[in-house]
Design a binder for these strands. Structure first.
Length: 295
DNA sequence: GATTAATGCTAAA
DNA sequence: TTAGCCTTAATCT
């Protein structure tokens, strides 16, 4: 469910509610029992994200490494101290999903009985977090965490010095179609199927353009627009790639139906040129694009 | 009530 | 190239 923006929001959420707190770690489902035992009782020092990877660093320098995959999600709950600590603007969404059972201000005595396959449960004095459906969930060393980071490209949501140039290098190094390169986490980390389609449209770029034939300037603009689009996603907790001018009825927030230019709009006329939006499978994922604008 | 598709990726075949 | 993870919402009978 999530692209990079959701994972960055999660990292902020974890930092806010669990930063500096001692956690009880368990695995109600059982598959993470060994990892839970290694982490439980320790203090979560820092939460961080790179692309779609989430790392929680504990005070003995072990990390909880989580990748949500296609349908993993975290649910949070707790007392008013806990939920009030979040700095993420409303509406709070976790893994693009409303955050579980609401906090019960008055009667909070602890987390509810786990529902379904809860791989990990984190519990502090004031709240809890449940993980289900994740692809990756492991307790790892800092060396192992570094190894995960080493195979990832630059993250547009960090956009550190040198990241832009590094992306340009990695993109132009290969002859693969740009539509595939944008989904390759070793080229850049955090973009998924929605941002891939939407940014290519916004840049009027043919999805089948080989990376090697993209100019330095175009590649740089592709990075800049990805930074913009994903930063909006972190702010909104939602992927909206269209400007207010295309939102029906002059709405203050984008109606879901108007949030994208091409994603899941196959068979409908392009918002810009009227050409019917196309869809095809590439790399086992659906690619949406406008044959009129993206040439 | 059953089936499918989904903002992803790994590992087995 | 395909199965698998094992959730959820939307779409189907």
């Amino acid at each position: 469910m999530p692209e990079g923006h959701s994972v960055h929001r999660l990292a902020r959420q974890f930092q806010d509610v669990f930063g500096g707190r001692r956690l009880d770690v368990s695995s109600p489902q059982g598959r993470f029992a060994a990892g839970a035992q290694v982490l439980t009782g320790h203090t979560m020092v820092e939460a961080m994200a790179h692309g779609k990877q989430l790392f929680l660093r504990f005070d003995h320098e072990l990390f909880l490494h989580v990748h949500l995959g296609l349908y993993g999600a975290w649910n949070f709950g707790g007392d008013s101290t806990f939920t009030g600590a979040s700095s993420i603007g409303a509406p709070r969404r976790i893994g693009e999903k409303e955050s579980g059972p609401a906090a019960d201000d008055t009667g909070y005595v602890g987390p509810p009985p786990p529902v379904g396959a809860v791989r990990v449960r984190l519990v502090s004095d004031h709240g809890w977090a449940d993980l289900r459906g994740a692809t990756t969930c492991a307790a790892i060393t800092s060396a192992e965490a570094q190894a995960v980071l080493d195979r990832l490209g630059p993250d547009p949501l960090h956009n550190r010095g040198g990241d832009r140039d590094e992306f340009i290098r990695r993109l132009r190094r290969r002859k693969t179609a740009v539509a595939l390169l944008l989904m390759d986490q070793s080229v850049l980390a955090g973009v998924g199927n929605i941002y891939r389609a939407e940014v290519l449209f916004r840049q009027a770029m043919d999805p089948w353009t080989p990376g090697s034939s993209i100019g330095v300037e175009s590649a740089g603009q592709l990075w800049d627009d990805t930074v913009d689009a994903m930063s909006d996603g972190v702010r909104d907790g939602r992927i909206v790639t269209t400007p207010p001018t295309v939102w029906t009825g002059g709405a203050a927030m984008a109606p879901d139906a108007d949030a994208h230019f091409v994603y899941k709009r196959d068979g409908m006329p392009c918002r810009a040129c009227g050409t019917i939006v196309g869809m095809t499978e590439i790399g086992a994922r659906k690619l949406y694009w406008c044959p009129g604008c993206q040439v």
